[in-house]
Each structure stands twice: as structure tokens, then as C-alpha cells.
């Protein structure tokens, strides 16, 4: 077994090596981009609807939906947490379904209807789920909250649509918005402050209201 000290030294050496290879890659990459530009461009146009408004953008092909929303459209309500689909902070609705916007390329959303936290409600006219999060104190630092709320809205829609889950007892029957179901369905949204119990209360409150 290596001592922790030895491991640290190795890691530092590796970091230096990695930095050098990254800058080298950047040089070859830009040269490659220039030679390819003629027939197949590394940037492209995309048009979709965000919160009811049509938008057209010219983007690097690598731009994720998350970065297009935050960096190009200044819709910074949607948050970048892990950027690898593990935390759920980037959750938005695409054609009414929740996805991780960090794991989706912007150009693949041509013609789609995207809803972010800014499109669910406004400070003057909150979405019922936003009000419920306020009422039940469903957050502490608030960083994961836009993703939690977008996910929460979609979860209640999924239950209404009859989508089963891992904890559904009889998968041939319609699922109910029980606490167990809500907890399972929200497992893709991490809250490091640990506001989970209040998030479940907020969702249970909204689920119990007449439609």
C-alpha cells in the first residue's frame, strides 16, 4: 500500500503532465477546426422556444443546452452543479419532460419547447410549486432549488400520466403521489443542505390540491 504522501506527490506530477497535454491538444484542435470549416462547420445555428419565446442562436457544436441557457440567453436560474448528470441542478423541461440540460447538446433541440425555472412563474405570479417550496421551507442555500422545482413539477405530471417507479408495488396499476413515490422519483436531484423532508412536504401539499 502506498503512503498517502507518495500518492499526493504522484498526483501533483500527473496534474502538471495533464496541463501540458491539454494546451498541446488546444493547438492541434484549432488547426483541425480550420481545415474542417469549409464543408462541415464546428459552429451552427439552432432555433427553439424558451419559456414561450422563440430564440435563434449561433453556437459552437459543443455547447450544451445548459450553457446555451446560462451563457447565451442569460437565464441563470438553471444551475450548473456537477455538469455530468449526477446532481440534477440543471433540470429543465423539454416538451414538458424533465431532462438534465448538462447532458444534452443545444443543436439537438431544434424546434423544441424548453421551460426553465424562469418560465414556470415570476416573483409576482409564482407557480404553485414555487409557493409551496417557500411555504414549507424546501431549501437552505437555494442552489439546487430551480432544478428541484422543475423536477418536482414534472414528477407530479409523471404520476398523473401513470408512469410507474422503482417503488410502485403493482406496476400494472396507476401510481399514487405517496411520500415513498416522491422520494424515489426525486432521487436524481441532490440537495447537499439536506432539505429533502421539506421538499417532500411541499410536493405532497401541491399533489393533494384539487387540479
Amino acid at each position: 500500500m502506498q503512503s498517502p504522501g507518495k500518492l499526493e506527490l504522484n498526483r501533483r506530477d500527473l496534474m502538471v503532465g495533464t496541463a501540458a497535454s491539454v494546451s498541446l491538444a488546444a493547438v492541434t484542435n484549432s488547426a483541425h477546426a480550420q481545415t474542417q470549416k469549409v464543408d462541415a462547420p464546428m459552429r451552427n445555428d439552432v432555433s427553439f422556444t424558451v419559456n414561450g419565446k422563440p430564440v435563434s442562436l449561433e453556437l459552437d457544436n459543443r455547447t450544451t443546452l445548459l450553457d446555451a441557457l446560462r451563457e447565451q440567453l442569460q437565464l441563470t436560474g438553471t444551475k450548473k452543479g456537477c455538469d455530468h448528470g449526477q446532481c440534477g441542478a440543471c433540470t429543465v423541461l423539454v416538451d414538458g419532460k424533465r431532462i438534465n440540460s448538462c447532458l444534452s447538446l443545444a443543436w439537438m433541440h431544434e424546434g423544441d419547447e424548453i421551460t426553465t425555472i424562469e418560465g414556470l412563474g415570476t416573483p409576482e405570479n409564482l407557480h404553485p410549486m414555487q409557493s409551496a417550496f417557500l411555504e414549507h421551507d424546501g431549501y437552505q442555500c437555494g442552489y439546487c432549488t430551480p432544478g428541484q422545482i422543475c423536477s418536482a413539477v414534472a414528477v407530479l405530471d409523471e404520476i398523473k400520466a401513470g408512469v410507474p417507479s422503482h417503488v410502485t408495488g403493482d406496476i400494472t396499476a396507476d401510481p399514487q403521489a405517496s411520500e415513498l413515490e416522491i422520494r424515489e422519483r426525486m432521487s436524481g436531484n441532490i440537495c447537499r443542505c439536506g432539505a429533502y423532508s421539506n421538499i417532500v412536504e411541499a410536493m405532497t401539499d401541491v399533489a393533494g390540491r384539487p387540479a
Binding site: G85, N100, P164, N189
Partner: peptide
């Protein structure tokens, strides 16, 4: 399928 990933990932 329901035992894998998260709701967001299963949608994509």
C-alpha cells in the same frame, strides 16, 4: 429500467 438511473436520465 425503473431501477436504473434517474427520472431525468430515463426520459432521454
Amino acid at each position: 429500467l425503473l431501477a436504473g438511473a434517474s427520472g431525468q436520465l430515463r426520459n432521454k
